[in-house]
């Protein structure tokens, strides 16, 4: 076996070298073949150029002390505002609360990815296993409903359910436990955030997987039944491989959003007693900036988030390419 793999890697390298050579040779014909498709890309490229790349020049205000009223208009103000380099960032970085917020952002986000992400897949698999079509559709619809309720409403609801006199605590007390102040306890708060966001978004997250499952060739299941594979084996050998590429892609995309730990959720649910565990970058900047309109600071923090997101996305994509030969580009 090891011999085999050894030989295989060798030939792999050879193949790659050959491929590279032939690539150069065929690059012109590839271009020729690609032209009609490249024409299709033009509207999309024009779109991102105007609505995404043009405003990106505004990122320079992250290195300025930007004053929107300086100069004749806000664009002029970008040129006239004084350059401060990385000061906007270092001013924040020296504050221990901000550094704590960065740590919290990572922890909360990692918990959400680690717990909510697999749960979305499991839930999708479970729904997919429901045989009755009506039950399946009903379940899907019901589970995607919470996504549509804003955090303001959801937060208030959970404060009632999990408040000191809420149902959860009534059960705990009835079972002989002590009343837990979930919303004021640094040990509980992150758990609470994960739980509520799971409750709200898991059903919604199943949609992509269910769509991918719908695309799996039914003949594969038939073949599996003929081979006397039971349902677990079918899930393992047909369904999961069938959605693997979607799972990998979703994970990579999720990693690319790691710095978004759920601003609107936390803003509604937290209070100062749980800042230690629940204050994230977004909420910290929000409080810090009340009444200040510090666009520069917001921009530099946004850039920091983007950089981390990009590193994780690139890293995730690289890993995925190494391990599964799949890539999002």
């Amino acid at each position: 076996m090891s011999e085999l793999t050894g030989r295989k890697t060798l030939s792999d390298q050879d193949l790659r070298r050959i491929a590279r050579l032939s690539q150069k040779r065929s690059s012109r014909s590839r271009l020729h073949r690609s032209l009609p498709l490249l024409a299709l890309l033009i509207p999309g490229l024009v779109f991102v150029a105007i609505f995404h790349y043009l405003p990106m020049f505004g990122l320079v205000i992250g290195f300025e002390k930007y004053d929107i009223f300086l100069g004749a208009n806000p664009i002029d103000a970008i040129f006239k505002s004084p350059w401060v380099g990385l000061k906007n960032w270092t001013d924040l970085w020296i504050k221990s609360k901000f550094r704590q917020a960065i740590i919290n952002t990572f922890i909360i986000s990692a918990l959400k990815v680690g717990i909510c992400f697999p749960l979305g897949i499991i839930l999708a698999l479970m729904i997919n296993e429901v045989r009755s079509n009506i039950a399946k559709k009903t379940l899907q619809t019901v589970m995607y409903l919470p996504h549509f309720i804003s955090w303001v409403v959801v937060g208030a609801l959970f404060m009632n359910i999990m408040g000191t006199t809420g149902i959860v605590n009534q059960v705990i007390v009835a079972l002989g436990g002590e009343t837990q102040k979930f919303f004021m306890d640094n040990r509980w708060f992150r758990f609470l955030l994960v739980l509520t966001s799971e409750w709200k978004e898991t059903g919604w997250n199943t949609i992509v997987y269910l769509a991918a499952m719908a695309g799996i060739d039914p003949e594969l299941y038939e073949a599996a039944t003929i081979d006397r594979a039971n349902r677990f084996q079918q899930i393992l050998h047909v369904t999961l491989p069938g959605i693997a590429s979607t799972v990998v892609m979703m994970l990579i995309l999720r990693l690319g959003g790691i710095m978004d730990a759920g601003f609107s959720q936390i803003l509604v649910m937290y209070n100062s007693t749980v800042y230690k565990s629940g204050d994230i970058i977004g909420t910290y900047i929000y409080r810090e900036g009340i009444g200040k309109f510090n666009w520069s600071q917001g921009t530099i923090v946004g850039m920091f988030n983007s950089l981390i997101n990009m590193l994780l996305l690139l890293g995730g994509n690289w890993l995925s390419r190494r391990l599964t030969d799949r890539s999002i580009w």
């Binding site: 690609s34 890309l41 806000p74 921009t299 996305l313």
Partner: peptide
């Protein structure tokens, strides 16, 4: 596709970076 990776990255990049509210 010719230049596939380059074009794909052009799009992916906009997912990560944005100019912000003012621009």
């Amino acid at each position: 596709l010719w230049g596939r990776k380059f074009f794909a990255l052009i799009f992916v990049f906009t997912m990560l970076f944005s100019g912000g509210m003012v621009p």
